[in-house]
């Protein structure tokens, strides 16, 4: 009844549909048969180019970035035992995008392309480790979220400083992309660069799932039932840092999807942090693919950024969860 299997199958099917739908959209109108033919590798060479070089990478990037954020959100919520924990809220995404921008700004990318995801991951790991370290010393989740907000504000301020000092408008537009989050113009090469880190992070997080369930009892009792607490903390920080960092390297900082997806999934898996991990990742990926389709459907002079749309939907949900939690406690 509460097995995640039907949920996983459903989300995978919906994702395949959404990815296909995303390939149908674009400035060149192409029919379903032409897109499907191009997707399976036959059909017109021009069609294949459009689908495989432009449309599919963009949709896949949205899915991968989303799934990393969904899994990180679900894992951090399990570790900190709070539904409001999420890479965006805790300042992890902002720090990652700051590190990536810094790397770009000083032109290190010309030295090594893989340095970009590495820089983003280093930023994400630093922020996640700081939060997890603080979590050992404080029992109050409010304090943790405040620390996260502090980290996010600092990263935002440093980002503004970099923008302030931006040498030319192109650099500025690059930075805005990092800050707001977008998957426009992503290529399969960009994905190939970030995906290994992202998948490593997801594998590490998947390995921590039983420990996340044990943490439901609180840290002391979880250690009592046999959880290796230091290892659990380290693995969650590492997994969330790797996948969030890679997600930021791919799509910039996209907030709140890591809160929304686990929040929808949790009641469907009997509130078990272990079983919510995979469906949360899939749903978050699906949500970003859909949001990106939305971004492309809305006609506007300047294309809307994916991260902006995600925040417009996600931030009210964040507030709603926070208010409801407060009401439940009183």
């Amino acid at each position: 009844m509460t097995s995640p299997a039907p949920l996983v199958v459903g989300f995978v099917a919906a994702t395949v549909l959404a990815l296909t739908a995303a390939c149908l959209l674009g400035s060149t109108p192409m029919g379903v048969e032409r897109v499907l033919a191009a997707l399976i590798g036959s059909g017109d060479a021009g069609d294949r180019l459009v689908v495989w070089e432009i449309r599919f990478p963009r949709a896949l990037a949205a899915f991968l970035a989303g799934s990393a954020l969904g899994a990180s959100g679900a894992a951090l919520q399990g570790l900190l035992r709070n539904p409001l924990a999420e890479p965006g809220v805790l300042g992890v995404s902002a720090t990652a995008s700051l590190a990536a921008t810094f790397f770009l700004y000083y032109g290190f990318v010309s030295v090594a392309a893989w340095g970009l995801p590495v820089a983003a991951i280093a930023g994400a790991l630093a922020a996640t480790a700081l939060i997890a370290f603080a979590a050992v010393h404080t029992r109050s989740i409010i304090t943790l979220i405040l620390i996260g907000i502090g980290i996010a504000s600092f990263a935002g301020a440093a980002m503004s400083l970099l923008m302030n000092l931006a040498p030319h408008p192109y650099a500025l537009s690059d930075m805005i992309n990092w800050m707001l989050g977008s998957v426009a113009n992503r290529s399969l090469d960009d994905i190939a660069l970030a995906a290994p880190f992202l998948l490593c992070g997801l594998v590490v997080l998947y390995g921590t799932r039983r420990g996340l369930a044990a943490l439901t009892l609180g840290e002391e009792a979880a250690a009592g039932v046999g959880l290796n607490l230091p290892r659990q903390r380290l693995a969650t920080v590492l997994g969330a840092g790797l996948s969030t960092g890679a997600s930021v390297a791919l799509a910039g900082a996209i907030g709140f999807v890591g809160i929304v997806a686990p929040h929808i999934v949790r009641p469907l898996v009997a509130h078990d942090p272990a079983r919510s991990l995979v469906p949360s990742a899939l749903l978050a990926g699906l949500l970003l693919v859909l949001a990106d389709i939305g971004v492309r459907l809305i006609q506007s002079e300047q294309e809307l950024r994916l991260g902006v749309v995600a925040a417009l939907v996600g931030a009210p949900v964040f507030v709603w969860i926070a208010v409801r939690r407060q009401a439940a406690r009183d």
Partner: peptide, 26 residues
């Protein structure tokens, strides 16, 4: 300190006690 972070059902919380035996809820 005996907190339960999520609104799990009673049987699932008891099953967490089987962690050391390799059990996973569900």
């Amino acid at each position: 300190i005996r907190s339960i972070a999520w609104p799990n059902v009673v049987r699932d919380v008891v099953a967490l006690g089987r962690f050391s035996h390799g059990a996973a809820i569900g």
